[in-house]
Write a protein that binds this DNA or RNA. Structure first.
Length: 308
RNA sequence: CGCGGGGUAGAGCAGUUGGUAGCUCGUCGGGCUCAUAACCCGGAGGUCAUUGGUUCAAGUCCAAUCCCCGCAA
């Protein structure tokens, strides 16, 4: 089958790799190269790097729904489109091009967590289960008919980054089965239950701001869900402090204002939240590299100070 | 050349107007103790990122270079 693969970041790579190994004729449509990092180095998206290494043609458009993109897609003449974390909205015109339509690989159990950052929000909200849904893309935001679903449990300490990696691998498998069913003519379409639908917003920097009036579990979930990006952060004496890893703890340092720090270089660093004390395992001060909280304590007397 | 912080003992940090290199933790040895991750005493461990310059004297002042990181995009 001739497939137009629309995907951008690492999440899309296992799916792309699966399609390549399955011998489909591929074309990769992805976002333009973007400036990355402190020195704004123009960096190609991972799917482009993969495609070039495997001799797959690459097409990059700012907006594929604009005439230029539509024209290129039509010229490529795919039988099927596949999207995985593409990051652009497709138009009806785009979707009408391939005869089999467009299959999207989505990192949630639809109709829950429609939108841009389903994996992170599932962790932030403390979900214990998520998964991969393949769906037939329509013009709405993740509203198309459901094809196949695979479920996975979310670990108590699992970070969004770790879950991302697991789901990207699972996504390739779910996609493989979906296409196999399509080719066998056994694919079943199930409309989404609109009454169960939830939407999650794109994750922004400010979503990482920790609120210590919340419970230890809620803060822990935020730290996990924003790791590795954008990272959870708080203010220590006016300076930003990133909190990379936390652990739920049963240690009790008594009552104290929310955000109060306790502990030492041996037992670890703990911060007061609404219902108890959360251990901060790994952190990063402004200008410093990330380190163990215990190491940080050796050179920074923090006990009694306040995080805000 | 977007703004900014930083490279000092194994780890995390301090080091004031240039004048013998310090703290906490770890480590090693000894002591105390029923015992200990606790406490006491002692020891080892540094080309102060690199190169050049100023000076009687540079971790400290000047210049250049390399590396790490935060913010902004």
């Amino acid at each position: 089958m001739k497939i137009a693969f629309l995907g951008t970041p690492e999440f899309a790579l296992p799916s792309l790799d699966m399609l390549e190994r399955s011998g489909h004729a591929l074309g990769v449509f992805t976002q333009p190269d973007r400036p990355v990092g402190r020195h704004a180095v123009l960096t190609p998206p991972p799917t482009k790097v993969y495609a070039e290494a495997h001799g797959i043609p690459v097409f990059q458009f700012e907006k594929i729904r604009l005439p230029e993109g539509v024209q290129a897609l039509r010229a490529f003449a795919p039988d099927l489109m596949v999207t995985a974390a593409f990051g652009q909205i497709l138009s009806a015109e785009n979707l009408a091009i391939p005869q089999y339509g467009c299959i999207n690989v989505h990192g949630s159990l639809l109709p829950k967590y429609r939108g841009a950052a389903p994996i992170q929000w599932a962790v932030i909200n403390g979900e214990t289960e998520t998964g991969i849904t393949t769906m037939l893309t329509d013009v709405g935001m993740d509203t198309g008919d459901i094809l196949l679903v695979d479920r996975v449990a979310i670990g108590e300490n699992e970070t969004a980054g770790e879950l991302f990696e697991r789901l990207s691998v699972l996504g390739a498998e779910t996609l493989r089965r979906t296409i196999a069913a399509l080719e066998a003519g056994t694919l079943v379409r199930t409309p989404q239950n609109e009454s169960q639908a939830t939407k999650c917003p794109m994750l922004k920097k400010e979503h990482g701001k920790i609120d210590f009036t919340k419970t230890t579990r809620e803060v822990h979930n935020l730290v996990r869900g924003t790791n590795p990006w954008p990272g959870a952060c708080a203010l220590l004496e006016g300076e930003p402090l990133k909190v990379h890893i936390t652990r739920l703890s049963t240690l009790d340092f008594g009552s104290a204002p929310f955000g109060t720090l306790k502990g030492d270089a041996k037992t670890g660093l703990f911060v007061r939240c609404n219902d108890g004390w959360l251990e901060i395992v790994e952190l990063q001060a402004s200008g410093a590299k990330r380190m163990n909280a215990k190491d940080f304590l050796k050179g920074h007397p923090l006990v009694g100070k306040l995080l805000a």
